[in-house]
Write a protein that binds this DNA or RNA. Structure first.
Length: 569
DNA sequence: CATTTGGAAA
DNA sequence: GCATATTCCAAATG
């Protein structure tokens, strides 16, 4: 508040952080602990202070006094009194309500608080009365065990977070070991941050800390490995839920490679297969699938088909509402949420907090980058102009056609060639949507093209050549999305992208751009035709990647004199 | 049995 | 705010 701080704290609980400010980096680091990044356009990053962001911070042991002090320190101007007051109120509610087992009644849980007036307030909330609350003493009330989840969910929504200390049902034992995938003799090793995050989840031995909750880690940080390590600690039958089939296959591959579990102990529960085994991997989609509109969710029974000791929710920010409902009923089972980005849509984020658990650990991507665990990625959108005849064609076409014309803009070839020159000597992958465009590029650049119709054997050969370095340029269609063994590259060029799937995009990027030998840098370019609808979609993708922590820059190409490509320097 | 088609979700 | 593309699953198809 000395007039020089990097942040502006506004009355609506948003915080503007100035990018060019010398204190930017330090402030960013602080804010990431107790605020949510909302958007990051040109010169200011916007964060928001919410009850949830405060509780998550508190769950990680941050004290109210410290948070308030940090906010004051960073703020350029006097922080609005109302903001400080509200934050203090939010934080004062954390940890005041504890849920534990009843000593007398096995079918009941006790909700207790050292502050009786707190319980008074709750008894006066009409909407939670349906969960059969009974006031037994000044400091205690009881509820039936079955309402554990829904009560927490409601109270959290109403602003009263509950600390769940009931503990867990252990589930069916399953004995296995982790192993190094390369040589069976080498013990499995975790990176330091992976160890820390697993410890944060498992918690102390008395089971009051950790237990259930969410770990936030950037793409490429090895989330599956952390999941495996958590399984290893518990040694119980496990249900793993993820966002799509590709990810299901990836989990299964990792389980096979890095654990002593036999193939018969690992099941895939998807549209194709319906295996329920000691370790089962499935998607959210199949769980919420209904044959007819008014049919029940016939796959939800998966939650009860075995005696699971652990449920892993991968990409927990994508968890759909019906799965929340079932999750509310199985609060006795340990739950681990994994994500690269905590959700921003309200309600849903609160349900993750109350039903899966608080944020137990967060690894800032920048730290991983500095320590060399993931590559430093530079993302760049390049605006490619259209030729005059093409522009005419574009303006005459409509809807779908428009997009395709823009995507297949032949002017992109020139840009690709330039990029290849700049990054000579690196392994480059070109990714595109339309086969015609890719074929053309393949001919012009003398590089092999992998499409869905290419036989598996041939693909593997090309992947191998690329991996060994004897081949340095590969063009792939969207089969890249499904290839589990897609090789490593340090430059990705997207010549035409899909409209929606931002998450797919980030996943692709995270997988393409693993740590690099040498300078540990990687580049990702998106080629977008200037002045067309393609831009709008690219904008959405950008936002997503920015949320993930990637830096994005936009570059215009001029028709002739191109100047230098600073992006590569 | 593999591929195509349709419907639902978000 | 509507529409649209995307994605998955399941039923139909040859």
């Amino acid at each position: 508040m000395d007039g020089t701080g990097a942040c502006l704290v506004q009355r609506d609980f948003t915080v503007l952080l100035e990018k060019e400010h010398p204190g930017f980096e330090a402030a960013r680091r602080e804010l990431s602990r107790f605020a949510e990044l909302v958007k990051s356009p040109a010169s200011f990053h916007t964060y928001r202070l919410t009850p949830l962001s405060m509780w998550n911070a508190a769950a990680q042991g941050l004290e109210a006094a410290e948070i308030l002090e940090r906010i004051r320190d960073m703020s350029r101007l006097e922080v609005p009194g109302q903001v400080l007051k509200e934050i203090t109120l939010w934080l004062s509610r954390y940890g005041r309500l504890r849920l534990r087992k009843s000593m007398e009644q096995p079918g009941e849980l006790v909700l207790e608080s050292t502050a009786p007036e707190f319980l008074d307030e709750i008894m006066n909330l009409e909407s939670v009365q349906k969960w059969e609350l009974k006031r037994v003493t000044e400091t205690m009330l009881t509820i039936p065990v079955r309402n554990r989840g829904v009560l927490k969910q409601d109270l959290t929504r109403l602003g009263y977070p509950v600390q769940d200390e009931v503990g867990y049902h252990s589930g069916q034992a399953l004995s296995f070991k982790l192993r190094d995938q390369i040589a069976a003799g080498i013990p499995f090793s975790l990176r330091p941050y992976q160890c820390e995050s697993v410890s944060a989840f498992i918690g102390s031995s008395n089971g009051t800390e950790g237990g259930s909750g969410v770990l936030v880690l950037p793409c490429g940080a090895g989330k599956t490995v952390i999941g495996l390590a958590a399984m290893d600690k518990l040694q119980r039958e496990t249900l793993i839920l993820t966002s799509n089939v590709t990810s299901v296959r990836q989990w299964i591959q990792e389980l096979r490679n890095k654990s002593t579990l036999s193939d018969l102990e690992i099941g895939e529960y998807s549209g194709d297969r319906k295996e329920v085994r000691p370790v089962t991997v499935s998607t959210y989609q199949i769980l919420t699938h209904r044959s007819k509109k008014e049919d029940g969710f016939k796959h939800m029974k998966l939650f009860n088909e075995r005696d699971w000791g652990l449920i892993i929710y991968d990409e927990v920010h994508l968890l759909p509402a019906p799965v929340f409902r079932v999750t509310a009923e199985i609060q006795a089972t340990r739950r681990l949420g994994l994500t690269a980005t905590l959700v921003r849509e309200d309600g849903c984020e609160k349900d993750v907090f109350s039903l899966i658990g608080p944020k137990l650990y967060e690894m800032p991507w920048r730290d991983l980058e500095q320590e060399g665990w993931i590559a430093q990625v530079k993302c760049c959108e390049i605006r490619v102009p259209m030729s005059e005849p093409l522009r005419t064609k574009y303006s005459l076409a409509e809807g779908r056609q428009k997009f395709r014309i823009a995507a297949e803009n032949s002017g992109k070839l020139k840009v690709v060639k330039e990029l290849l020159e700049i990054h000579a000597g690196r392994q480059v992958l070109i990714i595109g949507q339309y086969l015609g465009q890719l074929k053309h590029l393949s001919e012009q650049l003398q590089a092999p093209l992998i499409t869905g119709s290419m036989p598996q054997q041939k693909r593997i050969e090309l992947f191998r050549a690329f991996r060994s370095g004897s081949l340095s340029l590969l063009i792939v269609s969207k089969v890249a999305n499904f290839a589990v063994d897609l090789p490593d590259a340090s430059v990705g060029i997207e010549v035409s992208g899909s409209f929606g799937s931002r998450q797919e995009e980030a996943q692709r990027l995270g997988r393409l751009l693993r740590p690099k030998s040498g300078d540990n840098r990687a580049y990702f370019y998106t080629l977008v035709t200037d002045g067309t609808r393609e831009q709008d979609f690219a904008l959405r993708r950008q936002l997503f990647l920015i949320e993930q922590g990637y830096e994005y820059s936009v570059q215009l190409t001029k028709d002739d004199d191109d100047g230098e490509k600073e992006a590569a320097q």
